[in-house]
Design a protein around this nucleic acid. Sequence first.
DNA 1: AATGAATGAGTTTTCATTCAT
DNA 2: CATGAATGAAAACTCATTCAT
Lengths: 243, 243, 243, 243
Amino acid sequence: MKPSLQQPQEDAKKRILDAAVKLFAKKGYDGTRVNEIAEAANVTKGLIYYYFKSKEEILDCLLHLLLEDFTALAMEFVRNNIIPMIKSGELDIEPDRLHFSNEEAIMGFLRNTYGYFEEALDFALKNRDILRILMLESLKDGKYRRNIFQALHLLKGEEENPVYKTLAEVDRDFTYSDDLVCIRFFFSLVPLVSFAIYYDDFQKLNILSGEELRASFLRSSQFVLNAMVSGRDILLPKKEVES
Amino acid sequence: MKPSLQQPQEDAKKRILDAAVKLFAKKGYDGTRVNEIAEAANVTKGLIYYYFKSKEEILDCLLHLLLEDFTALAMEFVRNNIIPMIKSGELDIEPDRLHFSNEEAIMGFLRNTYGYFEEALDFALKNRDILRILMLESLKDGKYRRNIFQALHLLKGEEENPVYKTLAEVDRDFTYSDDLVCIRFFFSLVPLVSFAIYYDDFQKLNILSGEELRASFLRSSQFVLNAMVSGRDILLPKKEVES
Amino acid sequence: MKPSLQQPQEDAKKRILDAAVKLFAKKGYDGTRVNEIAEAANVTKGLIYYYFKSKEEILDCLLHLLLEDFTALAMEFVRNNIIPMIKSGELDIEPDRLHFSNEEAIMGFLRNTYGYFEEALDFALKNRDILRILMLESLKDGKYRRNIFQALHLLKGEEENPVYKTLAEVDRDFTYSDDLVCIRFFFSLVPLVSFAIYYDDFQKLNILSGEELRASFLRSSQFVLNAMVSGRDILLPKKEVES
Amino acid sequence: MKPSLQQPQEDAKKRILDAAVKLFAKKGYDGTRVNEIAEAANVTKGLIYYYFKSKEEILDCLLHLLLEDFTALAMEFVRNNIIPMIKSGELDIEPDRLHFSNEEAIMGFLRNTYGYFEEALDFALKNRDILRILMLESLKDGKYRRNIFQALHLLKGEEENPVYKTLAEVDRDFTYSDDLVCIRFFFSLVPLVSFAIYYDDFQKLNILSGEELRASFLRSSQFVLNAMVSGRDILLPKKEVES
DNA sequence: AATGAATGAGTTTTCATTCAT
DNA sequence: CATGAATGAAAACTCATTCAT
């Protein structure tokens, strides 16, 4: 039994990844030296190239891991909230809107969505470093540019991922109205991601403490979300729901 | 007098800045080579170092230009909308909320704010490349980190800029409620900036055309803004306004 | 007038090439460090990468220069010896042999060929370092593999080089008999190239002095060449010549 | 007893050597990575260092094997052809030429030599990969530089190898005339080695098939060899033979 | 104002070799 | 015998910056 000796082995790779996350998040991919990663991970530069064939592969690996987790999370929501409601007839997905069978269904959906939003928030918070990297890279021209959009599956096609398909089945068959796309992207995804990304800055700059920020952000989000639903006559033009 | 000859000379500097904006926005500051800037600007590397003492100075210059323009724009709003209302007694700024003298004042303020928001949007759009650079850099650890926060003057102090002071006078003396800070940052500034930053991507990825996007984003913003005002009982706890 | 200062400028590139030739010839391409080239050329590593974008490009450049010179030399021979004889009717090129109008034409051709061979020998000798590199590299699998064969234009096609075309016009239209190909390659080209390549080794190993070797090699070549012509009944099957 | 299990073990070494031959022949010693050898041999890098103490030792081992075989082959020829003729008085070796007792002795010697040449050719063919490596390395500056010369025992001394001595006894005591050295080296050894070395290239480049090439090369060699003997008045100045 | 050669410190990457198991 | 993680020295290459002209 040498548990203390076994760990240093394969976990060198983990240490490298951890160090890379911190550094990429802090200084950007281009601004980070492989040297620094090695130092921070307490391994030799050589070992980094033993596990990864290039600096870029470290980044690939990181973002891939994030995507996997995120996809699983999204799947969970679809499986637990959307699909049951569809099956029970409470929810119908039509070309450009969600059709709820009655007021109660709406409230139920909202409750679930709040819950999911909070989960997503904590997921983002937990992964805020990688998320920051993803944002940084998706603003650049390279191969990661589409990723932040794919996260919202605004982009059709390319969903070879089996897990992804289920999610897409629910979502992709109807065309969102432009406004819904806008709201979802700029007033849901972007704030959520930004929240995670700027979380540490808010603290460092002494604007709000972590708890304050989280609570306040959730209140604000809920408020906007409520508004979106109660104002659904604007966003979802035909108001068959109330009928 | 050789007016036709003088222009090509000093405009080399402009060409350098233009090339730098495009490249920094595309590949990030760290990801851009001085070489590439020289090529894109059709000047020699040497000339770049004639005009700028370092690569960083190019970036400084760029961001400084943006900040100047932006400050002027913000000043304009304060001067045209806030201050007159204060002078006329329609608006009173209290520690954690804006106090309007009556319903009509609110509507007027909203109208003005809509208008201002649209101006800000177009300003952001026009400067989207620099904005993208600013975002990219403010996510990193360096000297630009605070800039996106400063834009919202959430940060107290450090306003040596004379123009800045007037703006701050109105705003800084009272503590926003946490929620107001959150909403303003995550549901106003961040979406607005993101709109500009992702504007080109929406087109490149064939999600929405420029016009569609702009119109839709404005509708969505207005909707959220409306919600914020009509739901101000949530955001601005004591509802003296309606009284 | 600063002649002594002008030279160091562009001739740095020449110094790099010269150093590279020596080193590649001595230690092989893979065995030579860019560092060593820089030292030998008395320039910084950086400058090497200013002139050449990679180590491989140095090699490319070197071999390209050799090929150019060699092509010119071969052209000269064709222009001065083959074409005049064709025009005068003394020589006719048929599908698998050279057809001379009479004994005297043969002797004339042989005399010219001896002369040309000697020129080629001295050319090879002068360029023995690059030749050595070429041989070394053409034995490997990479992009240079075909070069030593192309030198003999045994390979058809790929002659975009305008200079090359004239040469090809004379030569490529008829199929050499296998034996002629063999003799030309293994008993003319290969010995000639080997002579140049091993020239220095013969001296270093104290086998023969330069002059001795050159004289002896020429005698031997002439002997073999003579044999080839006098035994042309074997190599050039149909003996119309003597008729 | 696990005979079926023992073989795969020790044959790992063979697999390593085989892989090394192929790779060294293809990419040169310096151009080959220990990694690649391991992969090609289907063993781990570690195992290579179990069998060989360094990359260089693999090469040493390879060339040593070739040299042993080649020496045996040469010995065979001396033992079977030269020594019997000397013993029978048909052949006498003088300072700068071979002295045959009569015309018939010459023809017999030639016949034997043709036969031996063919054997040598096939030997070279069989070992063409190692030969290629030997050539590649003997062109470089290192410890193998003299090897190709040693093959011709043009180099005096250093023959500690017991097998080698017998061969040398016959040959080394007299000084070849320069021309004989030249012819033997540049028009016998070099073509023969080149034949083996370029054998595969001729096929890959679709110049001649293996069989065609071999047959043609033998004819050509024989032709040159014949010429050398019939023209021996040139090569072997004093023509006592014909008397 | 402009050039382009030159620099050198620093960056990513490679690779033969070792070693604990 | 065999593995594969680990090393470190050195390799190729980069790039902001300087400088003589």
